[in-house]
Design a protein around this nucleic acid. Structure first.
Lengths: 256, 256
DNA sequence: CTTACGCATTTACATAGGTTATGCTTGATC
DNA sequence: GATCAAGCATAACCTATGTAAATGCGTAAG
């Protein structure tokens, strides 16, 4: 303890620091928030469907999904939640959408009660900005998912998603230069991309044959062989997640 | 003027009032905000692609779309903006997603500069709540659109969308019991639902043949003949937009 | 060791939806 | 009032993707 930063806080400090300058006090707040931790097992629900919920969750480790069940029994996965992500902070008076959040792998989260969120935002412009930014980012990801589902074919959808995940994981240091651990079954991919399992299998094979990716179903290690080529082929635009677009001038504009 | 409420303010006052109790002062703020007005013509861009923009817009009248252009030239419409909607208030330091907003019909909007938003939120819990609620609602609509695209067929997609629009318009008094003015070409519907124009045409005919809807392409009046049946058939769940779920207890929980 | 289960894989076949092309209205423009 | 463009309609044909069913493999449980 003492002057050292707790391991759990690091990922969030790093993430926030990439676009705001955190003060000592703010770092201490983050450490305090990440002190307590809840663990969930694979397939366990983190937020139940239609739970009225204003608290926020910081995802420390593991993968989770946000999904909805369709009347005919199908499931649509709406988004992936990765380490460093913040979720659940809808702050709505009531939950409009009956979506659920479920752990895909063992997961650790830090829960921040609603009152605490308000308190933190009142006392720190930077942390309030961080929340705002997380919200905007989440929305950008949802919108990109809509485009993926509406205007791309299976091959492009898969390529696009795999690139997005690589990119997002890299931002929190959970991926190599071109490979990462992908804990998704073909069923999960199908429910994400609006495809059948069989067709995901076919398309994955095509990606392998085209030497776009390598994927070992045993180790679950995915390697993207030629990012450039795949981005081109799948119509992937990195900038939609890029914080590098953010210059300090921008920050000053917004804050000042 | 004097004690009368300006016509333009009414729709927003009504909307907000359905879930918070506005004070006299807050009503006056809304009136002030809706005093100035910008007009846009059909097909004119309201927010340009990747414009760094933190201001909010109140949509007074007309229909607009939020859309993205795909590398291969296609267009995906992400959402519809209807009278009473608030949009553009991303407050992000930089715009993550390169989407644009365009008028579909002649449109009137009230622009609220970024500084003013912050100011208003600081001074009124209710109006701040209103913004929060608008954001949550927008997200719920996006998520529902993802499910529509990912897990429903053409018939269900169309039915589902037409019901959502009916429902949303009714909430701002712009629709009858089961009919409304639908200023959308089949091309716009196609770009929204991830379908081809031809297939939208086919599916629309099927909906007409099944006596689910009546649609006169001349007058653009859409009538949903049997809401119950169509909701069933399209897997539409009204509650996802329902503010009636909000009891005063809820509000007290959240605020107190 | 044996069974059983989850997941990936593959084949054969079915179909929803895409593509191309052609007319038909209607309303705007000269 | 001829021409043109936008939008709707419909037909013929094509293909991406879904469905069903069988097989194999690896791992966990008995």
């Amino acid at each position: 303890m003492g002057d050292t930063i707790s391991t759990d806080a690091e990922i969030f400090i790093a993430k926030f620091s990439s676009y705001v300058d955190l003060s000592e006090a703010e770092i201490r707040v983050i450490e305090e928030l990440t002190r307590d931790c809840m663990a969930f097992d694979e397939n366990q629900d983190i937020i139940q469907e239609s739970e009225k919920n204003a608290s926020a969750y910081l995802l420390q480790s593991g993968w989770a999904i946000r999904y909805k069940i369709v009347p005919n029994g199908g499931r649509q996965i709406i988004s992936f939640l990765l380490p460093g992500d913040i979720f659940g902070f809808r702050e709505s008076l009531f939950d409009l959408s009956d979506d659920s959040v479920q752990a895909l792998t063992p997961v650790r989260v830090h829960r921040i009660p609603a009152e605490k969120i308000a308190d933190i935002c009142d006392n720190s412009t930077n942390l309030s900005l961080a929340l705002t930014w997380a919200r905007a980012r989440e929305q950008a990801i949802l919108m990109e998912h809509i485009v993926r589902l509406g205007r791309r074919n299976a091959y492009e959808r898969l390529g696009h998603l795999l690139l997005e995940l690589l990119h997002r994981l890299q931002l929190v240091d959970k991926a190599g230069r071109s490979d990462y651990f992908l804990p998704l079954t073909q069923e999960v991919l199908a429910d994400t991309l609006g495809l059948s399992i069989v067709h995901v299998n076919r398309t994955l094979r095509k990606l392998r044959n085209d030497r776009m990716i390598e994927l070992d179903p045993q180790t679950r290690r995915l390697k993207i062989i030629d990012q450039e080529a795949l981005s081109e082929r799948a119509g992937y635009d990195q900038t939609f997640l890029d914080q590098s677009a953010l210059t300090q001038d921008c920050v000053n504009d917004a804050v000042g």
